[in-house]
Computed example of a mutant assay.
Amino acid sequence: MFRTRRVLAGALLTGLALLTGAGAAVADDPSSSPSPGESGDGSGPTEAGTAFRTATVLQQDQLATAGASAGDYLYWVFPADAGQRATVRAKVTLPESTARHGTSTWQVDVYDGLRRRQACMYGKQTGKVTADAGTVELACVLRTVRSWSEPWANDPLPGSYYVRLTVVDLPSADLGLPVQTEVEVTAADKGGAADVDGSLSTPLIPGASSVGQATEGASAAPAALAGEPEDGWSSGWWTDRWLWTVGGGVLGAFAAVFGYSLTRGSGRPSRVPPGV
C-alpha cells in the first residue's frame, strides 16, 4: 500500500507539472505590441499597392513604409494561420500644419482572402489628425483565426489578409498632400484554447490555382501567395491542448487506480490473532 501511494503521488506531481507548464505557455503570450517603428525586428517593403490585386506582401513582424498622397488607397497583404490573433498597427505622418487646411480622419480596415471585411475586437481603427498635430496612430486587433468554420459564418480563417489604409475625411484643398505611412503586423499564438474540430482543405489565398502557370508578361505566382508562412500553412500541429489531454488522462487513470486500492483495502477481513 505504501509503495502504491508513493507511485500515485509521483504521477500526480507529474500531471500537475504538465498542466502548469501548459498554463504558463498560454500566459506568456504577448498581450500588447509596440507601435510601428519601435520593434526593430526587421524592415519590410517600402511601397504599398493601390488595390487588392496589387497589394504589397508584408510578413508578420516586418515594418512596412510607404510614401503616398492624401486620398490614395494603400494596400498590404499578410498571412495569418489557425490559432493566431493578428494585430495591425498603422502610423500616418502628415506635412507641417501650415501646409494643411484643417483636420483629417484616417482609417485602417482588414479584409480576409474572400475580401470580407473583418471586424476589430478592439483598437483605434479610425483616428483624426487635428490642425496642430502631425501624426495619427491606428490599431486593429482581429479575432483569433479558426481552422474551420461554417460556410455562412464570417469567422477569420487561415489565408491572406489585406490591410487597407486611407483617409476618409479631409478638406478638398488637402487632397494630394504628401504623407508618410508605417504599417506593422504582429500575431500572438493562442494555443490549444483556440482549437476547433475540422480544418480547411486549402487556405483562403486568392489566385492559388494559378501557381506555376505563368504567362508572358505576368508573374508566376500572385502577390498574395508570397505571403505564405515560411513553414507552410497549419504546419504546427502540436498545441498545448495535447498537454492538457495527456495530463488529464494520466490524472484520471491514477485516480481510478488509487480509488480501487482504497476500496480493495477496506474490503479485506481483519486478521484474528492466533489462539483467540
Rank of each mutant, 00 (worst) to 15 (best):
L170K: 06
P151L: 05
A173Y: 00
W152F: 03
G159H: 01
V183D: 04
T166W: 04
K190Y: 00
S172M: 12
V163S: 09
P151Q: 08
D195E: 10
W152Y: 04
W152S: 09
E184F: 01
E184S: 15
V167Y: 01
S172T: 14
V163A: 09
S160E: 06
D195L: 05
G198A: 11
V168G: 05
D189C: 04
G159T: 01
D197M: 10
A187W: 00
E182Y: 03
A194H: 01
L200K: 06
E184Y: 00
V196M: 09
W152D: 07
A153P: 00
L165N: 06
D174G: 05
V185D: 14
P171R: 02
V179Q: 11
D197S: 14
V179L: 15
E184G: 10
S199R: 14
L165A: 08
A193E: 15
L175K: 09
P151W: 01
D197V: 11
S199E: 13
P171W: 07
E182L: 10
A153N: 09
V183N: 06
L177H: 10
A153G: 08
L200T: 08
Y162E: 04
T181S: 10
T166G: 12
Y162C: 06
D169G: 06
V196H: 07
Y162G: 06
P171L: 11
G176L: 13
Y161W: 03
V183F: 02
L170V: 08
D155M: 09
L200H: 05
P156H: 03
Y161A: 10
G176C: 14
R164L: 13
L165Y: 03
A194L: 04
Y161H: 10
W152K: 01
P156K: 02
D169T: 02
G192M: 10
D155L: 10
Q180F: 07
L170I: 08
S160V: 06
D195C: 00
Y161M: 04
P156Q: 04
L165Q: 08
P158L: 08
S172L: 14
S172W: 04
A187M: 11
P156V: 03
S172Y: 05
L165M: 05
G192L: 13
K190V: 12
Q180A: 15
A194Q: 02
G159Q: 00
S160C: 05
V163K: 04
A194M: 04
E184K: 02
A194V: 05
T186A: 15
P171M: 09
G192D: 10
S199T: 12
A193V: 13
L170M: 13
D169S: 10
P171A: 14
P156E: 07
